[in-house]
Amino acid sequence: MTTAPLPEITAYTAADHDWLVEAHGRLYAAENGFDASFPAVVDAALREFEAAHDPSCERGWILRDGARRLGSIFCVREEISTARLRLFLLEPEMRGRGQGRRLLETCMGFARGHGYRRMVLATHESHRAACALYARTGFACTRSTPVRSYGQDLVEQVWERPL
Rank of each mutant, 00 (worst) to 15 (best):
R97Y: 02
L89R: 07
M94D: 05
F38T: 14
L46G: 00
R102T: 04
E78L: 07
R86W: 04
T10C: 10
E8D: 11
R69D: 07
I9V: 12
R112E: 03
T82C: 15
H114Q: 05
A36L: 14
G33A: 15
R95S: 08
R102P: 05
F74P: 00
F49P: 04
Y12V: 12
G66N: 13
F34R: 03
A52H: 11
R97M: 01
F34S: 04
H24K: 08
R101Q: 14
A52K: 15
T106N: 01
R26C: 13
S56L: 13
V76R: 04
D54L: 04
A44S: 15
G66A: 07
G25F: 10
I80H: 11
L70N: 02
L90W: 04
C107N: 03
E105G: 01
I62T: 02
L46I: 08
G113H: 04
A40W: 06
A15Y: 01
G66L: 11
I80Q: 15
G33Y: 08
H53G: 15
D35K: 00
A11R: 13
E105H: 15
A45I: 05
E22L: 06
G96K: 05
P39C: 10
R102M: 02
V21W: 10
R69W: 07
H24P: 05
E8I: 09
L63P: 03
I9L: 07
D54K: 08
D65M: 00
Y12I: 09
F49E: 02
P55D: 00
A45S: 12
P92L: 02
H53V: 04
A52M: 07
G100K: 01
L85S: 01
E50N: 06
E8F: 07
I80S: 09
E31I: 05
G96C: 00
E78Q: 10
M108I: 15
A52R: 11
L90K: 13
